[in-house]
Design a protein around this nucleic acid. Sequence first.
DNA 1: CCTCCCTATGTAAGCGCTTACATTCCGAGG
DNA 2: CCTCGGAATGTAAGCGCTTACATAGGGAGG
Lengths: 329, 329
Amino acid sequence: MKVTVYEVARAAGVSVATVSRALNGGPVAPATRERVLAAARRLGYRPDRLAQGLATGRSRTVGVVIPDATGPLYGQMQRGLADVLTAAGFGYIATESRRDPGREAALLDEMLARKVEALVLVGSGLPVAALRARFSALPPLVLIEREGAAAGVPTYQIENEAAAYRATRALLGAGHTQVAHIKGLRRAGREREAGFLRALAEAGLKPAALAAGDFTEEGGYRAARALLARGGFTALFAASDRMALGVYRAAFEAGLRIPEDLSVVGFDDLAFAAYLTPPLSTLRQPAYELGRRAGEAVLSMLGGETPESAVLPCAYVARASVARKGGAV
Amino acid sequence: MKVTVYEVARAAGVSVATVSRALNGGPVAPATRERVLAAARRLGYRPDRLAQGLATGRSRTVGVVIPDATGPLYGQMQRGLADVLTAAGFGYIATESRRDPGREAALLDEMLARKVEALVLVGSGLPVAALRARFSALPPLVLIEREGAAAGVPTYQIENEAAAYRATRALLGAGHTQVAHIKGLRRAGREREAGFLRALAEAGLKPAALAAGDFTEEGGYRAARALLARGGFTALFAASDRMALGVYRAAFEAGLRIPEDLSVVGFDDLAFAAYLTPPLSTLRQPAYELGRRAGEAVLSMLGGETPESAVLPCAYVARASVARKGGAV
DNA sequence: CCTCCCTATGTAAGCGCTTACATTCCGAGG
DNA sequence: CCTCGGAATGTAAGCGCTTACATAGGGAGG
C-alpha cells in the first residue's frame, strides 16, 4: 500500500500540513520534526514528485536538448550538468534533436508539458527569437555552444577562435610558413577557421590550402587526400581530432611521415588523441566544465539572478605530431 | 494565463470530462470531438503531464540508469531506446551511477519518486535480488548488459563469448598459433576471455600470453608493453578497441609493424577503428539495437506481455590489422 | 492578572487532470 | 404510445501534495 503524507501524519500524530512542513524545512518544533521524520523513515515514505510538482508548480526538473547524443564529448558535458543539478535536487530529461527543427520543437513541447523549470539547449538549433515566438511561456533558458548572448540568454561556449589561433601559432612557432586547414561545420567550424586565418594574417602569411570537412574521420580523410594531392604545405590544422585521424590515414597512404613531413594539430582532445602514432597535438575542450557552468547558471536563474555568459578556454596540448619545419610536401 | 481543460471546455461548450475524453480517445460524438480539438488547438492547450500522471498513476516516463555516460557506445544505445520510447509517447530520465552502489540506490529512489513506469538498468550494478529487497514496489525492469535472466527479468546483452570466439578463430584461420589476449573488466571482459580460450582450446592450443587490462588506451598500452617485453606471440586479441589502440602504440615503440609482425583484433568498432593505420579488425557492437530492443521490451511489459531476453550478435569486421602469420615477436 | 503577539499546528482549498457514476436524450421494440 | 437500453455528456470525487488562513497556546509586557 502506498505511503502518503496522511499515513505519516497519522503515525506521527500530527496533521498533514505539519508533515509537509517538517519534511520541507518549514517552521516546526524540533521535537515534532523529529517525530515526523522518524515516522516517515519507518514507513518508507517517499514523496510523490508528480504531486509535489502539481501542488507547487515546480517540477524540480530541467530539460536538456542536444543535437546528437553520440558526440564523444557530450557524455562529459552531461556529467557536469548532472553533478550540479542532482546536488541541488533537480532531475533532468535529455533528448536528441538530431538537428531537426521540427523534432526540436516537438521535444520542447513535450518538455514544457512536463513542466521543466529550465531548459538547457546544446548546440545548433532554432534561434532564441524563433523559440520565443513559437512558445509563449518559456522557462529560463541556458545555452551551450549556441547563439543567444544577443538575446540576453546566458550562453556557455568554448573558445574556438582564440584556441584555433593558438594552435596555429604553435605551428608557426615551429617554423612552418605553409599551413593548411581542414574546416569544420557550423559556427564552431567558422570560428576555428577565423582563428586560423587571424594567426596567419598576423604573421603576414596566407593559408597554404583550405578544405571543407564535416568533423568526421571520413571527411578529414577525403579533405586531406585532396589537399595532399596538390601539396604545398608542411603543417595542417584540422578542426577536429576525428578529422585529424583521417589526415593521419591519408598521410600514411601518401607515404608521408607525421611529423617529419607533415605536422598536424587537431581539436577536442578525444581519448584516442594521446595514443595515436604519433600522439596528436590538439586543443582540450572543457566539456565537463561547460556542463557544470550551465548547471550553475540554471540554478542561479531559478534563484532570480542573472548569470553571466562565459567563453571557456581550451588548453593547447602539445604532443609529438608537431615538429619543427622539415621538408615541404 | 495557463490554459487548462476548463478553458478548453468552456471554449468548446462542453464539460471537462468530454474534453478529456475527446483528447484521449474516449467515447465522444465525432462532431463534439472535432469541436474540442479545434478549441484546444486555438487556445494552445498543452496537457500538464504532472497532473495527468497524478490522476492516472501513470507518468509516461521511464528511468534509465547507466554506469558511465562517457562511454563511446552509450550514445547509440540511448538513441535506440529514445527512438522507440518517444514514438510511444514516453519520456525518459537518464542518470549515471558511476558504478557506485550507494549512488545507484539514490538514483533509483529519485526515479521511483518520479513514478517512472519502468526502469532500464544498463551495465554493472546492484543485483536484481538486492534491488527487490531494498525497494518494495519496483516497476517493470529491463536490463542491458547486466545479469538478470535468472531473476526472470528481460535482459539484452551482446554476444561476448561467441564474438570473441569468432575473432580468435579469425586469427587462427590466418595461421597464427601463438596468440595473446589483453583482458577487459567485469563480465564482458570475462566472457570475451572465455571465447578466446575456447577457440584456442578447440584448436588444441594454449594462450601464448594473457594480461589484464581495464578497457582504456592506457591500460592496453601498459598490458601490451608487458606482453611485448616477453614476446612469444604473433597475434593479439584486445578486449576493446581502446586497448587495441594502446597496443598499436606499444607495438610502434617496440619497433613492431602491424600486421606484418603482429596481428591485432579489437572489440567495439568505435568510429576511429576504421581509420587507424592499419585499420583495426574488430567486432561491431549492436549498441543501437540493444537500446531499441530494451525499449520494445519496456513497451511490451507495460502492455502486460513478457518479452524474451536476447543476446545480440556482433559482426566481425575484417580489416588490415590481421595478416597471415609472419615472423614471431 | 489580562491583553497582545508570536509560534506551533490544524483545516481545507486547491494544483490540472481522469474517471466512476449519474443524467439526459433517442430510437427501437412491444 | 410507453418503456427500455444504450450512447453521449455532465457532475464531482479524488490523485498526493503544498499552503493560505484559522486556531490554539503561551510568555512577555503592562
